[in-house]
Design a protein around this nucleic acid. Sequence first.
RNA 1: GCGAAAAUGGCGAAAUUGGCAGACGCGCUAGACUUAGGAUCUAGUGGAGAGAUCCGUGGGGGUUCGAGUCCCCCUUUUCGCACCA
Length: 824
Amino acid sequence: MKYQASEIEPKWQKYWEDHEVYKTDLNNPDKKLYSLVMFIYPSGAKLHCGHWYNYGPADTWARFRKLMGYNVYEPFGYDAFGLPAENYAIKTGVHPLDSTLKNIKDIRAQLKRIGCMYDSNSELMTCDPEYYKWNQWLFLQLYKKGLAYRKKSPVNWCTSCQTVLANEQVLGDGNCERCGSPVIQKNLVQWFFKTTAYADRLLEDMNLIDWPEETKTKQRNWIGRSVGAEVEFKVDGSDEVIKVFTTRPDTLFGVTYVTLAPEHPLVAKLTKPQYKISVEKYVEQTAYLTDIDRQSTTKEKSGVFTGSYAINPINGESVPVWIGDYVLVTYGTGCVMAVPGHDERDFEFAKKFNLPIRKVILQDGTNLEDELTEAFTEAGTMVNSGKFTGLNSIAGKEAIIKDLEKTGDGCAKVNYRLRDWLISRQRYWGTPIPVVYCNSCGEVPVSEDSLPVTLPYDVEFKLQGDSPLRRHAGFMNTTCPKCGGPAERDPDTMDTFVDSSWYYLRYLNPKFKDGMIDTTLTDKWSPVDMYIGGREHSVMHLLYARFVHKFLMDIGLVKTPEPFMRLVHQGTITNQGAKMSKSKGNVVNPEPYIDKYGSDVFRLYLMFMGPYELGGDWNDSGITGAERFAQRLFDMANTYTGWYKSHKSEAKYDLAELSNEEKSVYRYVNKTLAKYQHEMEHLKFNTAIASMMELSNELGKNLAACRPGLQSYTMARVTSMLASLAPHLAEEIASILGREKSLFVEPNQFVPDPEALTVDVVTIAVQISGKMRGTVDMPVDSDQETVFEAAKQNDKTGKFIEGKEIIKVIFVKNKILNVIVKQV
RNA sequence: GCGAAAAUGGCGAAAUUGGCAGACGCGCUAGACUUAGGAUCUAGUGGAGAGAUCCGUGGGGGUUCGAGUCCCCCUUUUCGCACCA
């Protein structure tokens, strides 16, 4: 009989829904397991293979844990704010709310076909005022603590999206992460969250979490902690002071000039009249450069002299002050002390402008007189360094910092590459920023009890280089919460990464009215135990969420420092080598496969393709393998219809009483159970399925020859294993066999019989002089003598030993015998 | 340039601590059953060779009785960062 997925799968989906099989009792946190996938952006496109590859196997792992007896919570929701819906509105006139709600409705129906254990009570969407209200509340809490602030700064501006972007949203090539258009720098007043205040904790707490090392490394690199010193250079003939950050205070004696970023506020002050024209010209030129041009490492160094001199505090030397675009205003202090002898960039700059190069660190094994042909950037012995000469440069760092601290010219300092999170967006479809601007009171936060600041429906979306909300008088004009006078709202909305940095807490009670999160439940259920999603979120989302979670801990809302205890990235499914995307037109639609093979077979195939973390190029040629496997198990069940009722199985069988076929089946079943459980725990779905296929091959040979009770025993275990991998099929099979309730209403996992796992005969590899020559089957734990004798008698291996002089024998019990013979 | 990961049959891939390389699946070959086969079943399937055997995990060295696995060098691919002082 053909397995008709199209009839059977909806049947079980309905059963699960009607019987609320997957409703989690959140008041009972015993053996709780919060298993989460990254929520979905509800675009107009359908769920593609990538979504399935994320959600299907993640659900399989959660089911595996559920059957082990865990109280599993598996929610799902919608990351509903964002640019694509707004861009779609500009193009078609369909309001983002309307298109988003429609998309959610469609996706909900598609999701149902996967057959995941999603708890429908948990569903949330971030565009709901009841959700984004709490984004605003979070903003106000950050504001109170000084962690949300407004400043004018050079920011990334996407020319096509017409909004600013966070640093994390600009790709390496300088283009917009969303649309790929060029990003330019604009000087704007914007809202920031002070992520840098948490930099150290974000680094340190990575010890607490079980995350892929690659992801931790990416975050570490992004945070970019570097330890050094801040040193003050007084400006000759001026009250101004140039602060520099350096990781190499030990090279301070090698400073031959100082360089400021062209945008640095001191530039105008320090430029002498006769250099004004060239400096202004240079600053203007720099402003025209895109970030890519400017940051290209292949670009030749450029810069101009300001006419001013700075005093090196360590030796009182006067050095010229230059400006150069290789100095970034956004990193450190925006000024560097240039040590051309021991820094590649300074070396290049000095060569170009004929500035002196001084050797202050001597490379071991070289002479003081040797000329530097390139910067020596490693540690060595300090030379030409006053009283520090002769000191090892690593010790010299400390010594010089101490000296600077004594004189008040500098101090130890830690710097970060991480910058504060820019959250303002000049777009409509997001959370309004809860701040008003009053002519007399200035910047005033909206009071908490008047939240939410509701996003108006009737706006004009057209992009005019500014937030669409600014043109909505009803929204913009308000009264000042402080003085009651007329005031204007902030026209910008928040980055949608704010929404996604705490949604996992809201899931536990999305309808909660009395606060951002229902702490009676989040205390029990957070942190998330398993989080599965793509590598593309390695930095942005996962870093922001960690930041917000830590902040929530600081204000007492959550009790743990980290949001996601275990993280797994599923691999990417590509098509013809390229990442699937609507614009490339290479998206593989799973629906035809679901129609033809059913959701379970498709899920099985996705998991069987290869290691979960690896992904791979899409190729459907192997799906028939999964189909045959499913069909074979279905056929097998049909030969044992009602078996559970008519033929009760024992809890355990005595090997001595079993026939050879029975023994083989009994051993195989238990061996597979052990293997399967180990593989599933580590999300190695491909090998878990392979082991079940092996079992299925064995059962095809020997199950028919077994006593009926053992057949029931076997099928119960097969069904239990299959339940996580192919839930609909497993339910159907169990029901054919005579089970009366769902497989998922109670723990349903079998412990392998340890006696079945111990073998009495082992196959031992025999090597002669390290070459594989054959194998011998021996009773378990046979000693060297016995195995050696058997190897001599063996047809294949004996002839290599016969008559040879034996030099040495290596023997590993139950594994290998290696006989080293004298070569003739 | 720096950092991370990877490279195994025609293809997707397996290989607890160094111990029978290629499990499992796709495909392919042959056979069976069939009016039919893009169904199912059976057998075979890394390469060379009639065979005994020999050769084989990107390339080159090394450690070891024994290396896909450990060490060194190189090549290629993917990803991340990229003048971060």
